[in-house]
């Protein structure tokens, strides 16, 4: 099966390359940025993926499925939001954990809640960037403004899940 993911990415890339050629963009900086990102991400990402595969074998999958799976119903959302809150790390670790959850049978709604909660409240980002650059008063306004968003996203995903099975994560 030719995956839709590859198709979307290839189309995006071709459109951008076409635009870049038309604008006579200098390819040097693009290649430089690409190589920098590759080296930063790919070695770590591959290790994290392999580690996630082993961890999925080690953790009690039934427990995760009971907490975050379809049968957990609405209870899965606060649990997922809390798990997202306590991941104080970048995307390599957060998405490796999401992959482990998905393999153990977590529902799409729970995974949406987990990722939204992590991305909004990632502690390292608050400490390294938000507090030094914007200060505590901004953090307070932001935290209160986005507090319900992981649940809102999860609830919406759950509603969509009632109508269609579209959006189920690919379990590798």
């Amino acid at each position: 099966m030719m995956s839709i993911g590859i198709v979307i990415l290839t189309v995006c890339l071709l459109v951008l390359v076409f635009l870049a050629l038309r604008r006579r963009e200098d390819p040097g900086p693009v290649v430089r940025r690409m190589l920098e990102q590759f080296s930063k991400l790919i070695p770590r990402m591959l290790c994290a993926l392999v580690a996630a595969g082993f961890i999925a074998q080690l953790i009690p999958q039934q427990a995760i499925a009971a907490l975050l799976g379809e049968e957990a119903g609405i209870v899965a959302l606060p649990i997922a939001a809390l798990s997202g809150l306590i991941v104080p790390a970048g995307p390599v670790i957060a998405f490796a954990i999401a992959a482990v959850f998905a393999k153990s049978g977590a529902s799409a709604a729970a995974l949406v809640t987990f990722i939204t909660s992590w991305t909004l409240f990632a502690t390292h980002r608050i400490l390294i960037y938000e507090l030094p650059l914007l200060g505590p008063s901004f953090l307070r306004i932001r935290a209160v403004s986005v507090l319900v968003m992981p649940f809102a996203a999860g609830a919406l995903a759950m509603l969509i899940g009632l109508m269609t099975s579209y959006g189920t994560p690919i379990i590798h």
Binding site: F95, A108, G154, G167, P169, I170
Partner: peptide, 30 residues
């Protein structure tokens, strides 16, 4: 870079779809 490779394109689209109203909602609350 993250959703599509790790979770699949369908999940990524679902997550984008349900996240569309969030920033505007958060701005209104703020």
């Amino acid at each position: 870079v993250w959703d599509v490779p790790f979770m699949g394109a369908e999940f990524a689209m679902l997550r984008v779809l349900v996240s569309l109203p969030l920033p505007i909602l958060a701005g209104l609350i703020a």
